[in-house]
Design a protein around this nucleic acid. Structure first.
Lengths: 118, 118
DNA sequence: GCCTTATTCAACTCAATGGTTAAGTTACGC
DNA sequence: GCGTAACTTAACCATTGAGTTGAATAAGGC
């Protein structure tokens, strides 16, 4: 159980993985498509998807030869509850969230992949 | 900015550090007192406090020869907003949070330190 | 059946983490 | 001002993590 939190938080601690989650928010995607905007090997993305899956943040279903990735936002529930215990953060400020997406979405995935952050 | 999230999530990914945060929820504490319930060296705890400070999750103020640690829950705001973007997790279920505390508070810090999780 | 596409696996490198012990530093207390 | 309490720093070690390349596997398409 605390291990769940370990895995979820560790998974979220990587900007590439957060960017992937944000992408999947829009729609389910095949591994190759997830990898496309990033400046790193497919194998690397495959690994990232592995840790996201292990953390329960996404699920992967193989249909034919393509493996579809699907967001599983419920995995965030425990982590969210844990965090909320430290204070009341005003219920979803969508504007703030959009700002994050602007920074972390595929448009700039290149930047994420190259420099990590600034 | 995305680096902030990196640091916050990475800091939260360790059970010892989460336990420390939970302890500080009750009251400000000196480094030695923070370390007391754990089965690891003071130096190790000092490092953990360093990463929590770097992430902005706590602040440390030296008064005399003791350094007081204080929770800074605001640092969780951005992370919380980010997570909330993935779904509406019902506003603070205090019971659920208490369950986490039971597992991660100092009473069982020994267990946390020894086995990490089960 | 064969080429190709989609994805993973294996082996490796390099850097970062989490821990250790031992040696500093700084501030009380007497 | 000396001894000690409260921390931090340094040097080290073992493990993990993020990335690479290259080979393996699996499923289509024709």
């Amino acid at each position: 159980m605390t291990q769940d939190l370990d895995q979820v938080f560790a998974a979220l601690a990587d900007p590439t993985r957060r960017a992937i989650l944000a992408m999947l928010l829009e729609d389910d995607m095949a591994v190759t498509d997830v990898a496309e905007p990033f400046e790193m090997s497919l194998a690397a993305i495959s690994k990232h998807l592995g840790v996201l899956t292990a953390a329960g943040l996404i699920s992967q279903e193989k249909r034919g030869r393509v493996k579809w990735c699907k967001l599983e936002p419920d995995a965030l529930r425990n982590a969210s509850v844990w965090m909320q215990g430290f204070g009341q953060f005003e219920p979803v400020n969508l504007d703030a969230f959009e700002r994050f997406l602007e920074i972390e979405l595929p448009e700039t995935a290149e930047g994420v992949a190259r420099s990590g952050s600034e």
